[in-house]
Design a binder for these strands. Structure first.
Lengths: 136, 136
DNA sequence: ATAACTGTAACATTAACTATTACAATTAAT
DNA sequence: ATTAATTGTAATAGTTAATGTTACAGTTAT
């Protein structure tokens, strides 16, 4: 993950937690994050698909958490935004005639998987509530 | 890390381990990886700077491991190629007038750091030798 | 002298990420 | 009903990062 999606998602969720039941607009969220409102809506849409936020259209619409912050694990957030493994991507088409090239991607897959498991298990021990309550 | 540098580095090191004392050329390595020789040399140069490989110029030159494979931890490899934290980058300039925006990057830094520590500690338990001996 | 290398720079290409604009659909208030 | 504020999403553009290529000076064994 070389992008900022995790950072944006955590930022959104922290703001929503701090706002309680009150819905926040994508424009407001974007203002705090310093990002474009349409991008924020895209991420909200993704977080919604993962059951982390709820949104309402129309005047006085906006988004709020879909469940209590202590029920949102940071691993849920990671799972929602993750695209490639933490250790990176694999190469396409290593040489199938080389004993190492032939097998490398299988062994890398195993290693990547283990690494993701470790990461998920650590992030599974932390909640949004914990993260969020650090703020002044 | 959304790139393939970890995969390339591991591939290189595995090949060098398998070749024992015999030096391998960047051209040969590139052939197994299916990458450009100049790119492979760039990574070799980086791995050399991190004390993992040794290279020799000139005819019959090439690269070999700088130390035994069981003395090379996968965390050494990760450290050598890592550019951004596993969880991604942070946003530039979140809103300093927002209580959340003002602090978010500090708290994200802490979280990212912890996550890197976990990763490093797990990868520190595994060696190149272990990885390398999986191959047929 | 020659051939096979490394190391590195400069440049080109491609892919990923981020940002912008636009607009139909929704909703609450008046 | 009309208006205003909002979501959701598509299309597109711009920017940055990753990958690939070419070139060549310098090194070393034969």
């Amino acid at each position: 993950m070389n992008n900022t999606r995790f950072a944006i998602a955590i930022h959104i969720l922290t703001l929503l937690d701090h706002s309680g039941k009150e819905r926040l607009s994508s424009k407001y969220l974007a203002g705090s994050i310093n990002a474009n409102a349409a991008m924020v809506r895209k991420e909200l849409s993704n977080l919604n698909a993962h059951g982390l936020v709820e949104s309402k259209a129309g005047k006085y619409g906006g988004s709020s958490l879909a469940k209590p912050a202590d029920a949102i694990k940071l691993s849920d957030v990671y799972r929602a935004v993750r695209q490639t493994p933490a250790l990176g991507s694999k190469r396409d088409h290593p040489n199938p005639h080389c004993p190492v090239g032939k097998e490398i991607n299988d062994h890398l897959s195993d290693l990547y998987q283990e690494t993701e498991d470790i990461l998920m298990s650590r992030l599974g021990e932390r909640t949004l509530a914990e993260f969020s309550r650090q703020f002044a």
